[in-house]
Simulated assay, not measured.
Amino acid sequence: MVLDIWKQIKQKDIAPIYLFYGTEAFLINETKQLLLRQILNEEELDFNFSVYDLEETPIEVAIEDAETFPFLGERKVIFLHNPSFLTAEKSKEKVDHNLSRFEDYLKEPAPYTVLVVSAPYEKLDERKKITKEIKRNAVTVEAKKLNEPELKGWIKEKAKGNGIEFESNALEQFMTLVGTNLFLISSELDKLALYTAGEKKIDTDLVEKLVSKSLEQNIFTLIEKVVQRKLDEALRIYFDLLKQNEEPIKILALLAGQFRLIYQVKELSRRGYGQQQIAAYLKTHPFRVKLAAGQASKFTDEELSHLMGLIAEADYQMKTGGMNKSLLVEMLLFRLKR
């Protein structure tokens, strides 16, 4: 778990070799930057920090650097990017790597070097000897999509680093508004920290006042208003999105995606799947599944099929007809109202 590694790094418990892999690039980058800050000061960065792209540079060049004593400092940090030799994917590398040299280094790393291997791949090839060796000798962290408890823990940790703390209901509200994009979450936390300036507690009123809703969250809220038969509020959200220069075709696509998710969650729940299983099956975030499950309970199967038919019809007209696109979505909202 990334948060456990963060705690170790902050306590100066630094390993000689790290392997970060997975598709959550924001988490990988955050952890790498944390390592840099804990190991090197500003003056040392120019002399004792190196980055190698392994699609362009042989691994033995980086290893030679790792074995060279640091200059004007006690330790050095080396980042290795794009080690596609750890995967089963067809290599894009322009060079040949001396992996035996790398394997030897993994067994006896230089005590003054912190080597960080950054692999932005969903899976590693566990059959390869080099993969087995690096996982055996390195602190390995899989940077995957965080589930809801992990996401809450990550937000709390980031908030703490910014000198703020959420009340329990405020954290739920924050997650609902921002969604699961870690870059957006980090940006909104920075905004809250700047605004509060000394006030540590964040309540629901402050979240509602300051936090920007993601486009997906606006669509979720719009659907909620339709379900509650509050067409005037649904239209207000829609017109606000148009004022923000959101394209009607994109809004329609997100409406279609949300209703499709609601339908799928409803069907898979009926078959006995839990929310985590549904998230894995649909390859979406568990928090999105949780929100969709709440909306799914408000529709019958017949209603969902009818609504999806209306959206498909609007999509066809938007792509083939000459009617004004924004007016098409507006008319759809009138028809969605049950």
Rank of each mutant, 00 (worst) to 15 (best):
L215Q: 06
D240C: 11
Y263E: 14
S269H: 08
F299A: 08
F259M: 14
Y263K: 14
V227R: 03
V226E: 02
P286G: 02
L215Y: 06
R236N: 13
Q277G: 05
K250V: 14
D240W: 13
Y263S: 15
G274Q: 10
L215M: 10
F299Y: 10
I262P: 01
G272C: 13
N245P: 11
E216Q: 14
D240N: 14
R270S: 15
I219T: 02
L252E: 03
R271L: 11
N218H: 12
F239S: 15
E267F: 05
K213G: 01
G257E: 13
K266I: 00
P286S: 09
R236S: 14
K225R: 13
I278W: 03
K250W: 07
N245G: 08
I219Q: 00
F287Y: 15
I237T: 13
Q295M: 12
G294K: 06
A292F: 01
D232Y: 12
I249G: 03
G274L: 08
Y263C: 09
S297V: 06
R288A: 05
R260S: 04
P248L: 05
Q276D: 14
L291M: 07
R260Q: 10
E224C: 12
I237Y: 09
L241F: 06
L242A: 09
L291G: 02
F287T: 01
T221W: 04
K225N: 14
E224R: 08
D301R: 14
L222G: 00
D232L: 13
K213A: 08
Q217D: 09
L268T: 04
L268D: 01
V226M: 05
A279Y: 01
K290E: 10
F220P: 00
D301C: 09
E224N: 13
Y238F: 08
L268N: 03
I262A: 01
R260N: 12
Q275L: 10
Q264F: 14
H285Y: 14
K243L: 15
Y273I: 01
Q275K: 13
L231V: 12
S297M: 07
I223C: 04
L242G: 00
T221G: 06
D232P: 03
Q277A: 12
Q228P: 03
K283F: 06
S297Y: 06
L255K: 00
L254N: 01
P286V: 04
E302L: 12
V226T: 04
L215V: 11
Q277M: 05
Y273P: 02
K230A: 14
V227M: 04
A253C: 06
N218T: 06
L261C: 05
T284H: 07
P248M: 06
Q264H: 15
K225W: 10
L261N: 00
S297I: 04
K250L: 14
I251D: 01
D240Q: 15
L222A: 04
L282I: 09
K266E: 04
K243S: 15
F220M: 04
A279I: 05
K243E: 15
L231W: 01
E216P: 03
K225T: 09
E224I: 11
